[in-house]
């Protein structure tokens, strides 16, 4: 039972304990599986392996540890973020059909413990702002807030938990003296990484307003961006006359990039001739980060010249 939990959620204390108690040592089989875990994340293949055999379970738990070792050794933010998103999504789909008892264990572990206040399901405000996705629906201003509680639905609690898993998995420390086996498989892993990413973004400094710079920065850091952010960035670049190929290249930096989807969306935006959302809209999306008061991000250059 415990091993089963650790196998499904290797990022938990139970996961760590299982490695310790069962003396799981890094070996070729485990590391090979670790490489597969990362490659699956890159290719967006979701395998919610649920092995029954203890030996398989131990390998499964070990593979998570091995994958993290390789990521710590490589210090490649793109890979780490992709891995974190995939692990979080995997955990989320498992949590959706999890027992109440296990959900409670996970909530305690992740620090997303919902409570009840005035008959509503709530989470503490500080937990909410930490783990809520950066999308307009989750903006604090649009929520029911009272005495430090934010009302959430059961589904939203799961979403917060998913974000918490992502942040936990993303948090990879330094690993200065990696054992040979980790180094060997890291080389192997890098050979399997698609060459498309990450790409360069050659914009001159100060060419874009702060909000757009921040969106580009997110891409540069290979961090995920919510729907509104992505849409704003695409429409801005299109309206600025950046060619389709370059936009696609920029988008390839996002950890959950899917060429088919991204290319369809960018082409769609080009064909529809969308205009760039106003500063007011960006404010409501939570994307406005400065007080340039230019009305629309596209006016940045003219405004700067005048200044």
């Amino acid at each position: 039972m415990e091993l089963n939990f650790a196998c499904k959620y290797p990022f938990t204390e139970e996961g760590k304990q299982a490695i310790k108690e069962n003396n799981i040592q890094i070996n070729d089989e485990i590391t090979e599986r670790g490489v597969k875990r990362i490659v699956d994340a890159l290719n967006r293949v979701q395998r919610t392996a649920n092995p029954v055999h203890i030996s398989d379970q131990l390998i499964e738990i070990g593979s998570y540890g091995a994958a993290r070792m390789m990521l710590a050794h490589l210090r490649n933010r793109y890979l780490s973020n992709k891995f974190a998103i995939a692990e979080a999504k995997k955990a989320s789909s498992l949590m959706a059909r999890e027992t109440k008892e296990n959900i409670k264990r996970l909530q305690n572990e992740l620090g997303v413990v919902p409570g009840e206040f005035e008959g509503k399901v709530v989470v503490p405000l500080e937990v909410y702002v930490k783990f809520s996705p950066r999308s307009v629906d989750y903006r604090l201003i649009n929520r029911n807030v009272k005495e430090g509680h934010v009302e959430v639905s059961r589904r939203e609690v799961l979403r917060l938990m998913e974000e918490a898993v992502k942040m936990k998995v993303e948090d990879i420390g330094l690993f200065p003296n990696a054992p040979e086996i980790v180094k060997k498989y890291s080389v192997k892993l890098m050979k399997l990484v698609p060459k498309t990413a990450p790409s360069k973004m050659s914009f001159k400094e100060g060419e874009n307003p702060p909000c757009i710079e921040k969106l580009l920065e997110t891409a540069k850091k290979h961090e995920n961006l919510g729907h509104q952010g992505r849409w704003t960035l695409a429409v801005y670049l299109i309206n600025k006359g950046v060619p389709y190929e370059k936009i696609l290249q920029i988008f390839s930096n996002f950890p959950d990039y899917d060429e088919r989807v991204a290319s369809y969306q960018i082409k769609h935006a080009i064909n529809r001739g969308y205009t760039v959302p106003s500063c007011g809209m960006l404010l409501s999306y939570g994307l406005c980060i400065a007080e340039c008061k230019i009305g629309n991000p596209l006016r940045w250059k003219t405004w700067k010249r005048k200044k």
């Binding site: 405000l125 500080e126 604090l140 201003i141 649009n142 430090g148 409501s284 939570g286 980060i289």
Partner: peptide, 28 residues
């Protein structure tokens, strides 16, 4: 201690809430 470790993005959510920045009542 509740707010001590909040990062910049999280503090922005709080500041925007107080300033009513980006409030869209239609979302209600």
């Amino acid at each position: 201690p509740r707010f001590r470790y909040l990062g910049g993005d999280e503090r922005r959510e709080i500041a925007d809430y107080i300033a009513g920045a980006g409030l869209d009542y239609k979302k209600f």
